[in-house]
Simulated scan of single mutants.
Amino acid sequence: MNKKLNCILLIDDDDATNFIHQVIIKKAKIAEQVVTTLNGKQGLDFLTNSGKYHNKETPLPSIVFLDINMPVMDGWEFMEAYQGLSESMKNQIILVMLTTSYDPDDKERAQRIPEISEFEKKPLTFDMLNRLMEKHFPEK
């Protein structure tokens, strides 16, 4: 892999999970920057340069890893708001729902949302990252 992704965004309320996922991404050397947010609202603020990200130069992430169950704004509520973002922005982002949910209804619901590229089980692994990179970023 020659070029790295500009940014990966983790949206998950669990600090330990975010820490582990950051370590895996950094060891894989696939991204210049890894940003974590603790709920869907913060993730949306990051994408739209609003809230605490207002007037900050934040790179558009190439991949967003989204948890389902979070306080403030959960993954499904995030997706409702995300669908209202510009097509030009969404077309640059691979959105991966990364969850501990084993509920088949969650997977079916995710598959009905065109903006969700993948539905994966936690934790993030090197194999999962490699598979995602080969599928969605073969030129990297």
Rank of each mutant, 00 (worst) to 15 (best):
D106V: 05
T36A: 13
S117L: 09
I25E: 10
H136R: 03
L66G: 09
L10C: 04
M128C: 06
R131A: 04
Q92G: 06
I116L: 13
A28I: 11
V96W: 01
P123Y: 02
M128R: 05
M70I: 09
R112V: 09
Q92C: 06
E77K: 11
N55Q: 15
F137H: 05
E57Q: 15
P104G: 04
P123N: 07
E57S: 15
T48V: 06
K41N: 13
N55L: 15
A110P: 04
W76M: 11
C7H: 10
L5N: 03
K140S: 05
I63N: 10
T58M: 15
P104W: 05
I63K: 06
Y102P: 01
E139A: 07
S117I: 12
T58N: 15
L10F: 02
K90F: 00
L124S: 04
G40I: 08
A31V: 12
K121M: 10
L47K: 11
I94V: 10
T99K: 03
M73V: 11
D106F: 00
V35S: 10
Y53Q: 07
D14P: 03
E118W: 01
D127K: 07
G40S: 10
R131L: 03
F126W: 04
P59G: 14
K121P: 00
S62R: 15
S86F: 01
K56G: 13
T17F: 08
Q83H: 10
Q22C: 14
D105T: 08
E120L: 12
A31S: 13
F46S: 11
E120N: 10
K90N: 04
F119V: 13
N91M: 07
N49P: 00
F78A: 08
I20W: 01
Y53S: 10
M89T: 13
T125C: 05
E77S: 10
K135H: 02
I93P: 00
S50Q: 11
K52I: 14
K135I: 04
T48D: 06
Q83F: 07
E80S: 11
R131N: 06
K90T: 07
F65K: 11
L44N: 08
H21C: 13
E80L: 13
N6E: 03
M1T: 05
I30Q: 01
Y53I: 12
K3M: 06
D67G: 06
N18M: 12
F119P: 07
L44D: 05
S88Y: 02
K29T: 11
I94E: 02
G40A: 12
T100H: 01
N39D: 15
W76T: 08
T125A: 05
S86D: 13
K107V: 06
N130M: 03
N39R: 14
N69Q: 11
I8H: 00
S117Q: 14
L5Y: 00
I94D: 02
M89G: 04
F46I: 13
D74V: 03
K121G: 08
V34G: 09
S117E: 07
L95A: 04
E118Y: 01
C7W: 02
H136K: 05
N18T: 14
V23F: 07
M70R: 07
I63C: 12
I25T: 11
T17Y: 08
I113R: 09
K56W: 04
G84W: 06
F78E: 07
P61E: 14
H54R: 15
L47M: 12
C7D: 09
L124H: 02
E57P: 00
H21E: 13
N91W: 01
P123D: 09
P104S: 05
A81F: 01
A16V: 15
D12H: 06
K26Y: 02
N39C: 15
